[in-house]
Simulated scan of single mutants.
Amino acid sequence: MIPPHKTPSAELLARIRRYIAEHLRDASDVIEEAKRKLPRSKPRQFEDGRRHYSMGREVHKGPKGLGKILPRMEVGLDGILSRLKSKLDKPSETFSERLLRLIDASGMTDVEAYKRAGVDRKLFSKIRIDRNYHPKSRLVYAFIFVLGLNLDDARDLLASAGYSISPASEFDLVMQYCIEEGFDIDTVNEILYALGMDVL
């Protein structure tokens, strides 16, 4: 239980509740907006006519084709597959790698960082050893506040673990508000407790 002198002020809690009310969106709205942001392939001029008159086919005369008419892959799909392959080929930083790099950059020792985040030595050792360790989102948030990350860096760390700040989640909006305000982990936990949410 948090001592009374550590309880966040009524004014701060009111600001957070207003922030949630202003930013909280229905999950279906978030999904629709994400769909609208997806790139759409535009049909090229005369594409329908080409398909109709079989101009999109090629006769393959090599040993594999043996004169058969094979459909040619659509350029749009080729482009998508090529971009996807290049993204998969690029080694991206995993959560563990990014976290360890951020701890080093902060000037904190590993022990200081994981103790402040409320993580035990065994779990941190697992994070350090397992390059593909998949944490719970609360653990990621704990390190975000311990390291004092700004919103962009916080989003990057969350993304490296497969998470994002959802405008459809009250908890995520509280986290976003606290990141924007630069609160430390103790203040964040006091706020979560006062709002009736599970602490980090």
Rank of each mutant, 00 (worst) to 15 (best):
H5C: 11
T7H: 08
S9A: 07
E11V: 12
E11Y: 12
R15N: 05
I16C: 08
Y19C: 03
Y19N: 07
A21G: 05
L24S: 03
R25V: 09
D26E: 14
D26F: 07
D29S: 14
D29P: 04
V30M: 08
V30S: 03
I31C: 00
E32R: 11
E33I: 02
E33N: 01
K35G: 05
K35Y: 10
R36N: 11
L38V: 10
K42R: 13
P43V: 09
Q45V: 14
F46R: 14
E47N: 02
E47G: 02
D48I: 03
R50V: 08
R51P: 02
H52A: 15
R57K: 07
G62S: 14
G65D: 05
G65A: 05
I69G: 14
I69W: 11
L70A: 07
L70G: 03
R72V: 12
R72P: 04
M73W: 06
M73G: 13
D78R: 15
I80Q: 09
L81A: 13
L84F: 07
K85C: 02
K85W: 01
K85S: 12
S86C: 02
K87I: 06
D89C: 09
K90W: 00
T94E: 04
F95M: 07
S96D: 09
S96L: 09
E97H: 09
E97Y: 04
L99A: 00
L99P: 01
L100D: 04
R101S: 07
R101F: 00
R101P: 01
I103D: 08
I103Y: 08
I103E: 12
S106F: 03
G107L: 13
M108C: 10
D110G: 08
V111C: 07
V111M: 10
Y114C: 10
K115W: 00
R116P: 02
D120Y: 04
R121M: 01
R121A: 13
K122P: 01
L123I: 04
F124K: 13
F124Y: 15
S125Q: 05
S125W: 00
I127D: 05
I127T: 05
R128N: 09
I129N: 15
D130A: 12
N132L: 12
Y133V: 01
H134Q: 10
P135Y: 00
P135V: 01
P135G: 02
S137K: 15
L139T: 15
Y141L: 02
F143E: 00
I144L: 01
I144E: 00
G148P: 13
L149W: 11
N150H: 04
L151V: 12
D152P: 00
D153S: 15
D153G: 11
A154G: 14
R155N: 10
L158N: 01
S160Q: 12
S160E: 11
A161T: 10
G162I: 14
Y163A: 08
Y163N: 08
S164L: 12
S164N: 12
I165R: 08
I165S: 02
I165N: 06
S166T: 08
S166A: 14
P167C: 01
S169N: 07
F171M: 12
V174W: 11
M175E: 06
M175Q: 13
E180W: 08
E180I: 06
E181C: 06
E181I: 01
G182M: 10
F183Q: 05
F183Y: 15
D186Q: 13
T187L: 03
I191P: 09
Y193K: 15
Y193G: 15
A194K: 07
L195R: 03
M197A: 02
M197T: 02
V199Y: 01
V199K: 14
L200P: 01
L200Y: 06
